[in-house]
């Protein structure tokens, strides 16, 4: 916060004039961008529908309450599928992501030029694409069903788990590594004895954390045909059976809360 000398008088200002000008320009740009964006959206909106929204909302709510309790019976199987998509998908991702993380970590990547870059590229691509998009792709390739869901979850999780795991490997203490190397151990044995024990808590924590996220994601994969409770959701929405929809919402909420609880318990236990 500068003090400006003008007419022999020290003047205190929060910023210099140049900074003030830049700040104003910045704000102007943001506001202009927002106005443009809003105009763009507004042009593509049918405002008649929007003015009708409160009535539509109230109507929707009245149809959703009470939930269709009897519908629960047909939901157990999709729920079981959802659980399997999340769990098997996470396991599959762990199998792929663990070696990948060792290739991507600076301190464990083998001295083969370009290998680390490839591993990082795989991690980045996997992370950038939402599991729902992976599911779209896989449903097209493999056909609708649970298998597409499992692989979609796995493809998205590989990048997530791989990134967190390789960061954990890079943060591991170098002293035991040096000590194990000094005994004449092979590079593979060094990783096994000096690195693996150090990253075990992180590994367990990351796995359960991702499993928890995957439960949430698995509930919606059905929207594009990749199995699980989302299939029922899409079917109910398509026939405007809002009582069923709210029932599915309740079940999803309960499942998500339960998996969050399990994940929090396990993570508290391993750290």
């Amino acid at each position: 916060m500068p003090v400006i000398h003008a007419n022999g008088q020290p003047l205190w200002r929060q910023r210099t004039p140049r900074a003030v000008l830049l700040a104003w320009l910045g704000w102007f740009a943001v506001v202009a961008l927002l106005a443009l964006s809003w105009q763009f959206i507004s042009e593509r909106t049918i405002w008649i529908f929007v003015t009708d929204a409160p009535r539509q909302g109230a109507d929707l709510l009245s149809r959703m309450v009470p939930p269709d309790w009897a519908y629960t019976g047909t939901l157990w199987r999709p729920l079981w599928d959802t659980l399997n998509i999340a769990t098997l998908g996470t396991l599959l991702a762990l199998v792929v992501a663990t070696p990948l993380a060792f290739l991507a970590a600076r301190n464990t990547t083998p001295a083969i030029p370009g290998l680390r870059a490839v591993a990082l590229l795989v991690i980045v691509s996997s992370r950038s694409i939402n599991s729902l998009i992976w599911a779209l792709l896989l449903v097209m390739i493999l056909g609708p069903g649970v298998l597409a869901g499992i692989i979609a979850i796995a493809l998205r999780s590989i990048g997530f788990i791989g990134k967190l795991l390789y960061e954990a490997i890079e943060e591991s203490d170098a002293k035991p590594v040096e000590a194990i190397v000094a005994t004449g151990a092979s590079p593979a044995q060094m990783r096994l004895y000096a690195i693996v024990p150090q990253i075990m808590p992180a590994f367990a924590g990351i796995s359960v954390y991702r499993w928890d996220i995957n439960i949430r994601e698995a509930t919606i994969l059905g929207l594009v045909g990749a199995g699980g409770i989302g299939l029922e959701l899409m079917a109910s929405v398509n026939v405007l059976a809002w009582g069923r929809v709210s029932m599915i919402f309740l079940l999803i909420l309960a499942t998500v809360l339960a998996s969050e609880w399990v994940s929090a318990r396990v993570r508290a236990a391993v750290t």
Binding site: T45, F49, A53, T219, L253
Partner: peptide, 24 residues
């Protein structure tokens, strides 16, 4: 925080009609 964006989107599309406003 409990519901995925896409689930919320289903409801807003039902209320506001198709289009980017429901997305916003």
């Amino acid at each position: 925080r409990s519901f995925q964006e896409i689930i919320i989107a289903i409801l807003f599309v039902a209320m506001l009609g198709f289009g980017p406003l429901a997305g916003v």
